[in-house]
Write a protein that binds this DNA or RNA. Sequence first.
DNA 1: GCAAAAGTGTTCTCGTTACACCCATGC
DNA 2: GCATGGGTGTAACGAGAACACTTTTGC
Lengths: 234, 234
Amino acid sequence: MKALENRRIYTEQPKILVATDCIVFGFDEGILKLLVFRRRIDPCKGEWSLIGSFVDAEESVSDAARRVLLQFTGLENIFLEELRVYSNVERDPGARCISIAQYALIRVNDYDREQVELHGAKWFALDDIPELVLDHNVMITDALERLRQKTTHKPIGFELLPEKFTIPKLQSLYEAIHRTQLDDRNFRKKLLSFNLLIKLNEKDKSTSKKGAFLYKFDFEKYKKLEESGFNFVL
Amino acid sequence: MKALENRRIYTEQPKILVATDCIVFGFDEGILKLLVFRRRIDPCKGEWSLIGSFVDAEESVSDAARRVLLQFTGLENIFLEELRVYSNVERDPGARCISIAQYALIRVNDYDREQVELHGAKWFALDDIPELVLDHNVMITDALERLRQKTTHKPIGFELLPEKFTIPKLQSLYEAIHRTQLDDRNFRKKLLSFNLLIKLNEKDKSTSKKGAFLYKFDFEKYKKLEESGFNFVL
DNA sequence: GCAAAAGTGTTCTCGTTACACCCATGC
DNA sequence: GCATGGGTGTAACGAGAACACTTTTGC
């Protein structure tokens, strides 16, 4: 008991650094990619790393991640969700430091390419991820698993596509995330059965001569449906 | 860039306290309950609070939670999983302090009742949870949602029951967690279809004259099945 | 006219739901 | 002997999986 009480005195607490690392997913040319950069401080200066930062005194963890994302990509209002905390005592040889990993989904077409390169950041295909510092490769593995889990239960895959997208594109996204082949008829059927896609009068002819119709996801409608108990499962 | 580099110097980081709070679920007499206690330090000394602690320099977040659980319940090897991080800047008026909430599932029959009372801790039925300090009520809401989610996809409900349990008991647990009525025939049929329960030659006669057969969950078999892609859904 | 991707329907299977009665036992 | 909770089977339904051909158009 004494021990507990003592431990709970605010001013006597050990200094534990709090960082956040972002697993940034992008979908480009049919391939799922991740944004990494060359770390600028010791230990491990110059090695590949997830983008991240320490959390400032006057910001929440999520704010810290958004700050970093803005810095590296020039983008705001990105899909961002907490993955989990990495807190092994020895995870960072530089100091006692825990990291709250968060994964982000961005529309690769939108991001500010200059900004990305300016920071020495680079997109890697999922299969070509180099060795990263500390436990960052583990974070990626965990994030990917979460992404698979989450995309089947929530319509977050759309965050990786442009606002207007074709059904074949969406399918290839799901195939890339889950590393599977999907039946195009069944995929389309199920997808459309939700009545959550708004068909546009435009076609994307970049991938075929016939062209594929563009759609938008109806986020408004989805929110209402979700509130009344609707379950998205793809 | 400068700003970023500066921020990343280890020694210049602000002191952010790191705590963990445990949402401890128990299932007792057909009712889902939570363990809370009277906070012993300011601010909010004397008010109801989740059990928790600051994280020590030489322990991981999960170790900290296990330490607290041992202290309050006398139990080890408890099911424990991270919920999420609560890091709003103003969440704790006493200091800049983030908390990693974790939820635990314990077998109420097993715990050391003396130890619980010694610490001023108490079990509350889910419907009777008092107002707690800081954001702890929010944590509970989130934990409950997670518990609902998780129990339907993973066989963790068993962590709330004694090792030997009856099928009606398990059903009432699921009914308590999800606040629903389940069809007993369908529940039993689906449950047994997994072939993951070991039927014992004992009956529990505490709730009926006829008595209900006791079962054990086959965790070994489940692990193997899970590795080969089996999906538990109840 | 042909290559290449987009788009469309049907059948079969299997899992989910709904539903009602007998069983064992303590009192 | 009766009240109480435990245990069983079947039929109807709906969602998911498997599967092949036509359409459009740029070259």
